[in-house]
Design a protein around this nucleic acid. Sequence first.
DNA 1: AGCAAGCCTGAGAGCGCTGTCAGTCCCGAC
DNA 2: GTCGGGACTGACAGCGCTCTCAGGCTTGCT
Lengths: 355, 355
Amino acid sequence: MSPRPTAAPPPGPRIRSARSGPPTLEEVAFAAGVSRSTASRAINGGAKVSPRAQAAVDDAIARLGYAPNRAARSLVTRRTDSIALVVPEPDERILADPFLAGTIRGVGNALAATELQLVLLIARPGDGQGRTLRYLAGGHVDGAIVVSHHRGDALEAALAGGGLPAVFVGRPFRYRAELVYVDVDNVEGARIATRRLIDAGRRRIVTIAGPKDMSPGLDRLAGWQLALVEAGAGPRRSAVAHGDFTLAGGAAAMERLLAATPDLDAVFAASDLMAAGALGVLEAAGRRVPEDVAVIGFDDLGVATTTRPPLTTVRNPVEAMVRDAAGILLSLIAGGERPPGPRIHDAELVGRESG
Amino acid sequence: MSPRPTAAPPPGPRIRSARSGPPTLEEVAFAAGVSRSTASRAINGGAKVSPRAQAAVDDAIARLGYAPNRAARSLVTRRTDSIALVVPEPDERILADPFLAGTIRGVGNALAATELQLVLLIARPGDGQGRTLRYLAGGHVDGAIVVSHHRGDALEAALAGGGLPAVFVGRPFRYRAELVYVDVDNVEGARIATRRLIDAGRRRIVTIAGPKDMSPGLDRLAGWQLALVEAGAGPRRSAVAHGDFTLAGGAAAMERLLAATPDLDAVFAASDLMAAGALGVLEAAGRRVPEDVAVIGFDDLGVATTTRPPLTTVRNPVEAMVRDAAGILLSLIAGGERPPGPRIHDAELVGRESG
DNA sequence: AGCAAGCCTGAGAGCGCTGTCAGTCCCGAC
DNA sequence: GTCGGGACTGACAGCGCTCTCAGGCTTGCT
């Protein structure tokens, strides 16, 4: 019983505390004149609680400014009411920052309607299996959304067990049937971009591909190849240069391409940032865009409109994709069935001036 | 004692142990042949624990794959071992995404060495005092880093009480002595940028300022004015146009400026994104950059190198700034003294081609 | 050899909350 | 008037962990 000494400390100076900590359920119950159990019931769901008791508790909560202690609750319910967003360390070679921002926005939106909190886990590369995995396995979150991982990420293996509900954003490099993921249709996106180039009469279409250890890099390269094959033009080895999704990487790749295939008249870059890098090199080489060389990028996450000329690109619906992932995760956590296959979002061509 | 009924529930599909949930301290202690207390001591700090016991516990932990239950620990220690990163909803008018990414990277780095977790709180605009404030006040985190808020954010008032250790990144719009913050020297940054323009012989230097309800917007405007006054040239009213830190906003502002001050020969934009927008308008208007009009931006967070010509700009050391903020917060949480004043980082001019 | 002083260790009491279980109370029905 | 039953309610047992308290045991000193 003893509802804790309600001694009066110096007039509670600030927002919370200065008293002996935030109010507890015990105090709420006391203030409402009911038992702890009833107060608890009134707070959660309110089934089997008389309107009178409910009102009393609600009132007490408001008066005291009560907020349930998450730790205590989670200790008994075994739920944490928070999910992890696992992102790779945003190093130099990252897909570009806008991607991260879009991701966060998407998850944030999806979670806004719930009481779930977002715990950001930055998977540091050197860390390997360490911290992140331990945290995830430690039952500190109810589920996880994993973004943009590289080949060999231990996460995939660890999460494949299905112990923890998890959804990947972007096809896991090493696919396993148990893994749930959402993605943009990278192959198709690259295909339609390349197709546009072909339809415009370009004859020597090269590509700046992404890293070989990231699925978007691979898939976009495949789409480019596919389009060429469909058009009856087998791609040439010298027409591919790998970049690392950065501006500088794109520029370097463009230089290699120019050297290997001087007669190129179009380039499909696997990311806008790389396309931007290519633009610079092209200009320095005296090639006009799009007159001499058409350029198409991928992502449309911001950079595409800042370049000159503005980039024709393929829209990567990050936000919708991530919101989707969050929705699936929520359902998984609620005990829903694992969706039969990945959820692939359409990639849409955005025509601008570069190609 | 009873180390939990090892009844066999339907084959627990969990990632960890098919037993009943993750291992507990009790189990570790049992495996190590010591008491729960000793095991606990061995895990935390290990003071007053014999090497023998310590080794036994370490071994047991490794064997069992034990990870402390955060909820239980936090329930008794009253610390949550997590801090909040409060970011505003990244809406259209946001300072630009790279800022967010840099922020996250900075905090991540600073926290990497600790056991602290990062909880991301997205302060939705419509939400007002709601969720975010309640969460912060609810004792769910040990401290908070608050980023880039607008005028009137209720956070400032709520956090000024000092109940929760908090550090702002960017000068709070309504400054209070109790508020701790780190910032880049916006005034000085804008001043040196403008000064460079003056020294280059530019005579009619206009500015695309930021929104009037954000401190960086105001401060950068002030720096521009300061430089002009120092040079003996009072700024003219028509030489200022406010943008909203976006590309489109910058473009619109540039158009207004061009109309109001056709003879302008230099523009200082309060952000690179706005500068990029201005670049487009300038080109469309047939003004060459930098020959006819010099352009300098602010931030150097990525866009500056993708524009043509590349932007001369002022580097905003976001990452260092945020890392600094995290350091201060950590010290605050540890009971350290509140630093006497804000920590202001130097803004550095980065010369490129636009001005 | 005897005693104080450490050094380690184990027992135990909760932290705040939920959920089970056994009532209590008030009905209408018999 | 009594009884069965539904609607609510309160007591209580932990969830897993930390931390205070008392020891038990080894040392160091006299």
